[in-house]
């Protein structure tokens, strides 16, 4: 049986993209975890019509 993606995930040091609360990224960083903080903002500046269009068009 080939190893599942989840098992691979559990076997290797976790590498994180943190989308949201920056404190989580800072704490991970302090522990020496690889983490990239995303300066997240609502897609399309929060315009629901454009956001809907974008989700259909996919990015």
């Amino acid at each position: 049986m080939s190893e599942t993606k989840v098992n691979q995930f559990l076997k290797t040091p976790v590498k994180v993209v943190n989308i949201g609360l920056e404190g989580f990224a800072k704490e991970l960083e302090q522990q020496g975890v690889t983490v990239v903080q995303v300066d997240w903002a609502p897609p399309a500046g929060g315009d629901p019509k454009l956001a809907d269009l974008l989700s259909k068009l996919g990015t």
Binding site: A41, A44, L54, L57
Partner: peptide, 10 residues
């Protein structure tokens, strides 16, 4: 330049 990405990210 992808107009979808421009609009999405602002």
């Amino acid at each position: 330049i992808d107009i979808r990405l421009v609009v999405e990210t602002g």
